[in-house]
Design a protein around this nucleic acid. Structure first.
Length: 422
RNA sequence: GGAGAAUUGGCAGAGUGGUCGAAUGCACUGGUCUUGAAAACCAGCGUACCGCAAGGUACCGGGGGUUCGAAUCCCUCAUUCUCCGCCA
C-alpha cells in the first residue's frame, strides 16, 4: 500500500510512474484525495464533539461527587444532542476511512525509475545471459518423459491422490528434491540468512500484510472453516514475522530464509505451460527475505541477485536475467528481476526465481518500522526472492544434463546424494 | 473436545464506573555528586492520527454493547495457563 502522505504530496509523480504499468491511477487518486480531505474535516469535527463530551462528562462526575444531583442531571440532558452529533460523525468518518482504504488497496506500487514502461512479458528487458545451449547428439527428451523413463516422478499418481498439479516424487526423484532443498538452504545459510521453518497456513492479517489479499484472493487455497489460507510462497509467513514491529535502531539488516512448500490454485492456466513440472499447485521453494533500511535496499537487491546467479552457475544451468517491465511487475513490487533457465528439450525459458524490492509498500501494511536517528518511527524496506523454486530447476536439470545413458547430477549436489547419476 | 483462571506501558505489577494515559518497582535516557565507575539523589521516559501551532482525539488482547462517563459492567471472538480427555 502506498503511504497516504505520499499520495498527498507526490500525486503527479505517482500517476506518471504508474503509467509504466499501463495503470491509469488519476481517477483513484483524485477519489482518494477527495475522500481524504473530507475525512480530515469530518474527523476534526468529530474530535471536537468528543472533546466537548469528555468535558461535560467530567463535570457531571464532579457534580455528582459534590452531591449536586439536580445540576448533574441538567448537564446530562444537554449531552443528548452532542451524543447524536457524535454518532453521526463517527459513522461518516468510519465510512470515509473504509472508502479510502478500499481505494488505496487498488493502487499498485510505483515502479522504480529503472523499470521500463510495458504491457506484458514481451516488454521485459533481458539484462544478462549466461551459459550456452547444450548440444545433444541424440533426440533429447522433455523432463516428463525422463521422469517416467527413470521413474522419478509419477504425475498420474498425484492425480489419483489429489488432482492435476500435485506430482508424486519417487526414489531418486524424491532424493533429488531433498538434495536441492538442502543445497539451497546451506547456500543461504552461508550467505548469512537465518533459517526458519514457518507455518504453511496463515491468517487473513498475514495475507493482507504481504499483499496477497485483497489483490490475489483467488490464487490462494482458503479454508473457510478456520478462516485460514495455505501459503502461496514462503514470503508470507517469513515477512509477517515482522508485522507490527518497530526495530529499536536504524542499524539493522535482517536476512531470513526458509524452505516451504507453496500452494497455488493457478486457476485458468492451460496448455504446454502446465505440462510436467512447468506449473504446479504444490511445489517446493527456498525463499530469501530481507528487511532493510531504505538506504540499503538497493545494495541488498544486488546482493540477492548475485546470490541467485551463484546458485544457477553452481548447478551449471544456462540462464538469463530479466528486468520486468511495468506491466509485468507484481502488484506490490517496485522492481522485479526474473531468472529463467533454459530447458533444452522443451526449447523454452522457464522462470525459476523472482527477486523483488517492495520499498515501503509491504511495510505500510505490515506496520514494520525502525527508530531513526531522530528517534522517529520510519518505514523499513522489504525485499524477497526465490533461491530457488524447485520444479523448473528439476525440469532443466533433467533435460539439460541428460545423456544417452542417464542423467548427470551436478557436482555441488553430490554431497547430498548417494548417487551421481540417474 | 470438556471445565476453570487469566490477558494492563520494554518487563514486573496496582487499579473493579468519574479529574486514569493509567500507581509503584525494574530497565532505559539526561543531570548532580565522583579522579573515574558504582551507589545515592533529581528529572525525563508509550504509540498513532488530526492541526502551522496551542492543543485535541484514539488506544489497558480484538470487535461490539450499556452509560452523561468504561481499564473497570455486559456480549462475542482470539490467545495463554491449569485440570481432564485424545494424540505424533
Amino acid at each position: 500500500m502506498l503511504e497516504i502522505q505520499r499520495i498527498r504530496t507526490e500525486k503527479e509523480s505517482i500517476i506518471e510512474g504508474l503509467k509504466k504499468r499501463h495503470f491509469d491511477a488519476s481517477e483513484i487518486i483524485n477519489d482518494v484525495l477527495a475522500a481524504d480531505e473530507k475525512w480530515r474535516s469530518e474527523k476534526a469535527k468529530l474530535e471536537d464533539v468528543a472533546s466537548k463530551m469528555n468535558l461535560v462528562s467530567k463535570e457531571i462526575g464532579i457534580l455528582f461527587k459534590q452531591g449536586k444531583v439536580q445540576e448533574a442531571n441538567e448537564a446530562k440532558s444537554q449531552t443528548t444532542v452532542l451524543k447524536l452529533e457524535e454518532s453521526t460523525l463517527k459513522l461518516s468518518v468510519d465510512e470515509l476511512q473504509a472508502q479510502i482504504t478500499e481505494l488505496m488497496y487498488q493502487l499498485p506500487n510505483v515502479p522504480n525509475e529503472l523499470v521500463k514502461a510495458g504491457k506484458s512479458e514481451l516488454d521485459n528487458e533481458t539484462i544478462e545471459e549466461h551459459g550456452s545451449k547444450v548440444e545433444f547428439g541424440f533426440k533429447a527428451l522433455p523432463h516428463w518423459d525422463l521422469a517416467s523413463k527413470y521413474n522419478l516422478i509419477d504425475f498420474e499418481l498425484g492425480v489419483k491422490i489429489t488432482g492435476a498439479g500435485f506430482p508424486m516424487y519417487i526414489g531418486k526423484g524424491a532424493k533429488l528434491q531433498r538434495a536441492l532443498i538442502n543445497f539451497f538452504l546451506d547456500e543461504a545459510d552461508n550467505a548469512g540468512y537465518i533459517e526458519h521453518q514457518a507455518p504453511l497456513v496463515v491468517n487473513e492479517a498475514s495475507a493482507l500484510g504481504t499483499g496477497q489479499l485483497p489483490d490475489k484472493e483467488g490464487q490462494m487455497y482458503y479454508m473457510p472453516e478456520d478462516d485460514l489460507y495455505m501459503i502461496p510462497t514462503g514470503e508470507v509467513p517469513l515477512t509477517n514475522i515482522y508485522r507490527d514491529v518497530i526495530l529499536p535502531t536504524e542499524d539493522f539488516s535482517i536476512k531470513i530464509t526458509g524452505y516451504t512448500p507453496c500452494f497455488r490454485r493457478e486457476a485458468g492456466s492451460y496448455g504446454s505451460d502446465v505440462r510436467g513440472l512447468n506449473r504446479l499447485h504444490q511445489f517446493d521453494k527456498v525463499e530469501i527475505v530481507r528487511i532493510e533500511h531504505p538506504k540499503n535496499s538497493n545494495a541488498a537487491l544486488t546482493e540477492m541477485i548475485n546470490h541467485v546467479k551463484g546458485l544457477l552457475e553452481k548447478l551449471g544451468l544456462q540462464y538469463r536475467v530479466l528486468r520486468l517491465c511495468g506491466g509485468d511487475t507484481g502488484f506490490a513490487a517496485s522492481m522485479t528481476y526474473d531468472f529463467e533457465v533454459y530447458s533444452a528439450a522443451q526449447d523454452k525459458w522457464l522462470e525459476v526465481s523472482s527477486v523483488s524490492r517492495f520499498d515501503t509498500f509491504q511495510s505500510t501494511r505490515l506496520k514494520l518500522r525502525f527508530k531513526n536517528s531522530e528517534k522517529k518511527s520510519q518505514l523499513c524496506h522489504t525485499l524477497n526472492g526465490s533461491a530457488l523454486a524447485l520444479p523448473r530447476i528439476v525440469a532443466a536439470l533433467l533435460e539439460n544434463h541428460q545423456t544417452d545413458n542417464g542423467i548427470k547430477i551436478p557436482e555441488v549436489l553430490h554431497p547430498y546424494l548417494n548417487f551421481t547419476k540417474i
